[in-house]
């Protein structure tokens, strides 16, 4: 088990390999479909200090607003990452992002982006919304809440021992590619 704390250095990221189990600490930034389209098309400057050497989490949480105006994450598991495939590599490069958390894995373009910038894809258990919300220590800030709505906003949260597995590393390794290849071969045999 490897404990990492954001912000991350390229050196630390380059040491990670597919299959490594990671407990992540520190701030992460939530972003999904609207955020990624926005980041690729508009490249807003104000996000640079927020994202540099940080980790993006593909997640649209269920949130609760408390009486004092603060927010609580009620459920916060990962959403399917492949939808961000057209945007992810650009976002990683533009903002020097060191990690992306999601589920289901991503494709070739993202893998190339990870290799070029020095970043990893970290897999969280999909559907484990309650379990993962327990690892959210606090909501630090939220951006674009009005414009995007709560599932799509840039939530900045602090996590504690957030359980992840490296499934795509910065050297071109991808567990998703291996499983896909093996299952396609097996499917051919089943269809014969």
């Amino acid at each position: 088990m490897i404990r990492l704390t954001t912000p991350l250095t390229e050196e630390a990221i380059r040491q990670l390999k597919v299959g490594d189990e990671v407990l992540l600490n520190g701030n992460v930034v939530l972003s999904r479909d609207m955020g990624h389209k926005f980041m690729k098309e508009q490249k807003p400057e104000w996000l640079k200090p927020i994202l540099e050497n940080m980790v993006i989490y593909h997640c649209g949480p269920v949130v609760r607003k408390n009486a004092d105006g603060s927010w609580t994450f009620v459920a916060a598991g990962p959403t399917t990452s492949i939808r961000e495939e057209p945007y992810q590599a650009d976002v990683i490069e533009t903002y020097k992002v060191r990690g992306v958390i999601g589920k289901g894995g991503m494709g070739k373009k993202t893998s190339e982006g990870l290799q070029k910038t020095g970043a990893v894809y970290l897999h969280a258990t999909g559907g484990a919304g309650s379990l993962l919300a327990e690892r959210v220590k606090r909501v630090v800030d939220v951006k674009m809440l009005e414009e995007f709505g709560s599932p799509e906003a840039f939530w900045i949260i602090e996590v504690e021992d957030f359980p992840l597995v490296v499934t795509m590393d910065s050297h071109g390794g991808s567990l998703h590619e291996i499983v896909a290849q093996q299952s396609q071969d097996r499917a051919k045999a089943l269809m014969a």
Partner: peptide
């Protein structure tokens, strides 16, 4: 194995959501 641990986490999540009356998954 990863498969075993993942299924175990799913069971943990089921217990937590039920106890807290919170959504099992954020995608309701």
């Amino acid at each position: 194995s990863r498969a075993f641990n993942t299924l175990n986490d799913m069971v943990r999540n089921i217990i937590l959501a039920d106890g807290n009356v919170s959504p099992l998954c954020q995608d309701t």
